[in-house]
Design a protein around this nucleic acid. Structure first.
Lengths: 115, 115
DNA sequence: GGAATAGTTCGATGATCATCGAACTTGGGT
DNA sequence: ACCCAAGTTCGATGATCATCGAACTATTCC
């Protein structure tokens, strides 16, 4: 089984084997705007139920693949999630500790409020 | 000196003497969307420096009165601030405790992160 | 190699929203 | 009574963004 980790903004279809350097967490405004959207908040909520990477398909209902992909990108660019490929399948992992370090308490309290 | 308190959504220009029943704090999505905007976040940040109501004019720079009024309305409808008239001048008061009760830690951590 | 599956990207579209100026209202001061 | 200062409301405008389908890419399985 192959596990690949993507740097956030250097994703191109012909460049899939970069090492796992993570984008810094975005501005407070970016993070808040990311989790303010109901669809993305639900994605974050589901991700928060475990510390494991979660397959994309398990993170949303009722929207198209392309819309979901757009929301993943927004979350990734804000530094809230990280894309991880496991055995050819894309997963998302919540960057709990990174966001906590940048903005202590923000993500945790939002997740608690969303439950 | 006269102090008047407005219920959030029953504000009309001919109805200025209602008692001070406060709107419940809005949904998590409303609160997050309210503080996600940079202009409104700065308003909240300035309000958080004191527990007193603050005059409108002291809460923003570089935008028009009408734009500021729009942002105040958004914050009020989300239940984040309350409008208070003191001696004929409009002030805003941060509803710290109400938001804290509804979504523990959210507003406090955002304010701390904004400083 | 071919089919099937998973995800991304690309336009396009419609909705939401931040912004402004202008007109209006209200309250205070002269 | 009159004016001035402070806020609100009303359209209008431009920007941003959520959404979709379609086309494209990549990976696994047969």
């Amino acid at each position: 089984m192959i596990i690949e980790l993507f740097p956030e903004d250097a994703m191109s279809s012909t460049d899939l084997t970069r090492d796992s350097e993570l984008t810094p967490v975005g501005s407070l405004h970016e993070v808040l705007a990311a989790v303010a959207d109901p669809v993305r908040l639900e994605m974050v909520r589901r991700l928060s139920r475990t510390d494991e990477p979660v397959a994309c398909g398990a993170l949303y209902d009722g929207i198209s693949k392309s819309t979901a992909s757009h929301h993943f990108k927004t979350l990734r660019e804000a530094g809230v999630v990280q894309r991880i490929v496991i055995g050819g399948n894309t997963h998302q992992r919540l960057r709990r500790d990174d966001v906590e370090a940048a903005y202590p308490g923000v993500l945790e309290s939002v997740i608690r409020a969303a439950d």
